[in-house]
């Protein structure tokens, strides 16, 4: 059974203007997203800013209200939990935030920040036990017990992110929603945190939803990848397959835009024109059609649905079955076909 199942999730934010709080429009941040997480697996969620990936994360841990759709945790509907039931369920699902500089209270020591989580869920009987558990957690994430008495400003970015992870782990969750946990860190520190997340997964049997815009990091960590564009999933499948043989023109462009450090890997660049459109006023038909090099008349009117063209590989594109030359990874761009008009 899936640990987490999301069915047709919608999160809409009304835009309010003026005193009378009329809502002249809605931002459809998440507009019909479905996926599931098996216990112990890592699923990567990729997309550019404004695509709704962070909103999906926040909706999962119930930090923003769900407009429509259902979230099941271990078969139980948790979409409408509140009060004590919600708090009890949050012991199962925790979140690691992007910016370790703003997600820690500057006036609390590391020990207080982690201890607070233990107190809220009543996990430590007394102060000694609390201190012991905090020190154990700090050791788990590669810090020292003495770091408990430090303030966030005394720590480096990487150390702070370790504290953020320790705080999430304090309540012994099963599922960790990591929202861009390494994006704010230096290159050499990113690798440390990625390795730490992998070690913790092995030791504690954690399930991860790993959100990032860096495709290389996501491919490294994840078994499956979901690609979002403007509030919807446009491609989903095994990480290897999505990265080697992307089928959606957006995924192809995203992959070809990643600068590679190997100068011999000559790639034809597919550079997308324009910016992602605003989720306030999404274009009709396929939301990607204004930037898509392959767009046809049908794409401007008819919205494509996610379709399983190969077992386990889903793509929301009308042209997914259209014949295209094969693309061995590396030799040509994952979007080479798209650069010549179809």
């Amino acid at each position: 059974m899936a640990l987490l199942e999301v069915q047709n999730l919608h999160v809409h934010f009304p835009i309010r203007r003026g005193l009378l709080t009329r809502a002249p429009g809605t931002v459809k941040a998440v507009d019909g997203v479905s996926f599931s997480l098996a216990p112990g697996e890592t699923v990567g969620l990729v997309g550019e800013s404004g695509c709704g990936k962070t909103t999906v994360a926040r909706a999962l841990v119930r930090l923003v209200p769900v407009t429509k759709g259902r979230i099941f945790y271990a078969g139980r509907d948790v979409t409408a939990l509140n009060g004590a039931a919600l708090r009890a369920w949050r012991r199962q699902v925790q979140m690691v935030f992007q910016d370790p500089y703003s997600s820690l209270d500057p006036r609390m020591t590391v020990g207080q920040a982690i201890g607070e989580a233990l107190d809220i869920h009543g996990l430590a009987a007394n102060r000694t036990e609390r201190r012991e558990r905090v020190e154990k957690l700090l050791l788990d994430v590669g810090l020292e017990g003495s770091h408990a008495d430090r303030y966030p400003h005394e720590l480096s970015g990487g150390q702070r992110q370790r504290v953020g992870i320790a705080r999430a782990l304090a309540v012994e969750p099963k599922l960790l929603v990591c929202d861009e946990p390494v994006s704010a860190l230096d290159v050499s520190i990113q690798a440390q945190i990625v390795n730490l997340l992998q070690d913790l997964q092995r030791e504690h049997g954690l399930t991860y939803l790993f959100i990032a815009h860096d495709l290389a990091v996501v491919e490294h960590l994840s078994r499956r990848i979901l690609v979002m564009y403007l509030g919807r999933i446009v491609e989903a499948g095994e990480a290897r397959e999505v990265c080697r043989a992307p089928r959606h023109p957006y995924t192809q462009a995203l992959l070809s835009a990643v600068p590679g450090v190997d100068p011999d890997q000559k790639r034809t660049r597919l550079i997308l024109p324009g910016d992602p459109p605003s989720p306030l006023n999404p274009p009709p038909g396929c939301p990607f059609h204004p930037r898509c090099p392959l767009a046809e008349a049908r794409c401007r009117v008819e919205r494509p649905v996610l379709y399983e063209h190969t077992p386990g590989h889903f793509t929301a594109c009308h042209l997914v079955d259209a014949p295209r030359p094969p693309r061995p990874f590396g030799s040509t761009a994952p979007g080479a076909a798209a650069t010549s008009p179809a």
């Binding site: 480096s156 990487g158 150390q159 230096d186 290159v187 050499s188 520190i189 990113q190 690798a191 440390q192 990625v194 390795n195 992998q198 495709l215 290389a216 990091v217 491919e219 490294h220 290897r240 990265c243 080697r244 992959l255 990643v258 590679g260 450090v261 190997d262 990874f329 590396g330």
Partner: peptide, 24 residues
């Protein structure tokens, strides 16, 4: 060398990233 190695590359599967220990 360590900096180049610690960045994951697309299409290259490796179990663990060779991270640089310590901090700047």
């Amino acid at each position: 060398r360590a900096l180049l190695n610690s960045v994951p590359a697309l299409g290259v599967r490796q179990e663990r990233l060779p991270a640089i220990p310590g901090t700047v």
